[in-house]
Design a binder for these strands. Structure first.
Lengths: 222, 222
DNA sequence: CCGATACTTCGGCCGTAGCCGAAGCAATTG
DNA sequence: CAATTGCTTCGGCTACGGCCGAAGTATCGG
C-alpha cells in the first residue's frame, strides 16, 4: 500500500497521472512535457508506474501510448485530491490557465468545473437527475430529455460501470455528474461541436455553437 | 496532491494511518509500536501528518491521542488499498494474526472480514438490505429486524454521514455494510458483548455469547 | 520536590531515489 | 541506406528525508 502511495507521491509522477486523468492515452514525450522532466527520467517513472499496474501501455508504430489501467486508479487519484484540498489552504498563483481549467474541463471522461456543476445543477433543478451522497439516478423525464439531446443512454446503461455517480468537483466543491451518464453526455457535446479540448490541458474551450447550445438546453450562460 | 500521497507513501506513516483506520484514537507510543520505529521518529511523522490535516490530536493528561481527521481520509486510504490489491500479487507470509484479521475485524467503525461479509450476505438474503454499487438501503423489514436487535437506527439516520454504504472487503473482495448503519450495528454488537477488540490490532474476538447470538440473529456460524 | 513516564526537538549519519548526460535500440522518412 | 524521431538503458551525481542517540519540556505519582 505504501508502495502505491509512494508512486503517486513523487511530483513528476503525480503530474503524469493527473495528465492521464481525463482518460486519454498520451505518448511518453507528451507525458515528459506534462511532468516537467526529461524524457529519460519520464521513461523511468513510466516503467515504475507500469510495474505497479497503475498504467497500461500500447505500442503503435514508434509511439507508445500510456493510459490509466482503469477507473479505480482515477478514483484513487480523485480521493487523494479531495483530501489534499481539505488540508491547509496553499497560496497558489492564479494563472490564466488556472482560470480556464476552473471554467470548464474534463474529469476522467465527463465534464467538471463551472460547466460541469452548472449542468448538474440544471438537471437536478428540473428533476432530470436525483443525486444522492454516493450514487445518483436519472428520472424518466431526465431520460427523455437526454435522449432528445442525442445522448445514447441505452449504450451507457449497457456498460458495466456505475451508471450515474456524483463526483465532487475540486474547484467548485459541489458535485457534478460522473459515471456512464456523465461520460455519454460529454461525448455527445463533443459530437455536437459544443466543446473542444485545449491542447496539453484538461481544460475545454466552449465554441460559439456550444454557447448557444448550453443556453438552450440547460439555460446556462457560459 | 503529491504531498499527501508522499505522506502515505512512507511505510512507517502508512502503518500509522492503517492503525488509525478503525476510527479509534491512539497514543503516540502505541503508534510508534504499530509503525515499528522509535518514539522520536514517530513524533516527527505525526507532526507531518498533522501539518497536512490527515490526523487530529487531542491532549489528555500526559497522553496525546491521535485520530484520523475524518472519514474522507479513511476512504482515501481504502481506495489506495484497493488499487494496491489489483497490482501484481505479492507473496506474503500468512501468519496467525493474519488469519485472525481475515476472520473478523473492524473497518473504520463497522465490521469486515468473514464476519462482516457474512452479516451482509444474510441481511441481503432475507431482504433486509439492498446493496447497489455505490449506495445501499435498509428495507422496512430490515429496519424492523435491526430495531428488534436493539440497533438504534433513528440515531444513525440523524447523523450527517452516509446512511448505508457498501464497502468492498479487501480480504473477501465482496461488499460488507458500512456507513452509519454498519457503525450502529457494530456498536450494538459491542454492547451485547458479542465481540471484543483484540489488543493492538483491528482484529475482533467473537465471544461464546456472540457465537450464539450471530447464529440466532444471522444464522451465521463463526 | 524528585523520579518516572509521555512526548518532542535537535543534530548528525546514511541510504534511497530522482535527476540528467551519454549512448543504445527501434521504427519511420527522405 | 543514412538521418531523424521516439523511447529506453546505463552511470554517476546530488539532495532530500528517514532514522536514531541525546537532550529538552510537560504531566503524573509518591
Amino acid at each position: 500500500m505504501a508502495e502505491v502511495a509512494a508512486l503517486v507521491g513523487d511530483p513528476a509522477r503525480a503530474n503524469i497521472l493527473c495528465a492521464l486523468l481525463d482518460g486519454r492515452a498520451l505518448t511518453a514525450t507528451e507525458l515528459a512535457y506534462a511532468a516537467g522532466v526529461s524524457a529519460q527520467t519520464t521513461s523511468g517513472h513510466l516503467s515504475k508506474l507500469r510495474g505497479a499496474r497503475l498504467i497500461d501501455v500500447c505500442k503503435q508504430g514508434r509511439h507508445r501510448y500510456y493510459r490509466l489501467t482503469g477507473a479505480h486508479v482515477g478514483q484513487m487519484l480523485e480521493s487523494i485530491m479531495a483530501v489534499a484540498l481539505t488540508g491547509p489552504p496553499r497560496l497558489q498563483p492564479r494563472s490564466k490557465a488556472d482560470d480556464l481549467i476552473r471554467h470548464a474541463r474534463t474529469c476522467y471522461d465527463h465534464f467538471a468545473g463551472e460547466l460541469g456543476v452548472g449542468i448538474a445543477d440544471r438537471l437536478i433543478a428540473c428533476d432530470c437527475v436525483v443525486l444522492g451522497n454516493e450514487a445518483g439516478e436519472v428520472t424518466e423525464a431526465g431520460a427523455a430529455f437526454l435522449t432528445e439531446l442525442g445522448v445514447d443512454l441505452s449504450a451507457a446503461r449497457a456498460r458495466r460501470r456505475v451508471f450515474c455517480r456524483p463526483c465532487v468537483d475540486w474547484t467548485e466543491r459541489r458535485p457534478h455528474i460522473g459515471g456512464a451518464v456523465g461520460a455519454a453526455l460529454a461525448n455527445r457535446c463533443f459530437e455536437l461541436g459544443w466543446v473542444e479540448r485545449v491542447r496539453d490541458s484538461r481544460a475545454l474551450n466552449i465554441t460559439p455553437t456550444g454557447r448557444r447550445g448550453f443556453m438552450e438546453a440547460f439555460e446556462l450562460s457560459v
